[in-house]
């Protein structure tokens, strides 16, 4: 199934990826192949099959509502910039 270069660019923009012309062509090929595969699956009769959202068939484990002491400043050690207790980012408007 063909996928246009504009579609690739749109998805790339949503994912904040910058693609060169060669990469766009490559993505068109790869994504097209994935969509071809999905198209094949579409041909199957799955009327009686419960939709699957995960490879494991278990239910998600749950935890009790108990507080665990947070690690503190260490958790933020990799923040690119900080100002006191706050994480600093380039200014943006809401």
């Amino acid at each position: 199934m063909a996928i246009g270069s504009e579609q690739v660019l749109h998805i790339a923009a949503l994912a904040r990826l910058e693609l060169g012309a060669a990469e766009i062509a490559e993505m068109q090929r790869d994504l097209g192949a994935i969509l071809d595969y999905v198209e094949q699956l579409r041909g199957l009769d799955v009327a009686d099959v419960e939709p699957m959202t995960h490879a494991a068939t278990l239910a998600t484990p749950l935890r009790d509502d108990a507080v665990v002491t947070p690690p503190g400043a260490a958790a933020l050690a990799n923040a690119p910039a900080r100002a006191g207790d706050l994480v600093a980012v380039p200014r943006f408007l809401e």
Binding site: A81, L86, V87, A88, F92
Partner: peptide, 16 residues
């Protein structure tokens, strides 16, 4: 939570 008032007018600040 985003905060837009801080010492540096070119920055915003975030409290997670």
């Amino acid at each position: 939570k985003n905060l837009h008032q801080g010492s540096d007018p070119s920055r915003s600040y975030v409290d997670y």
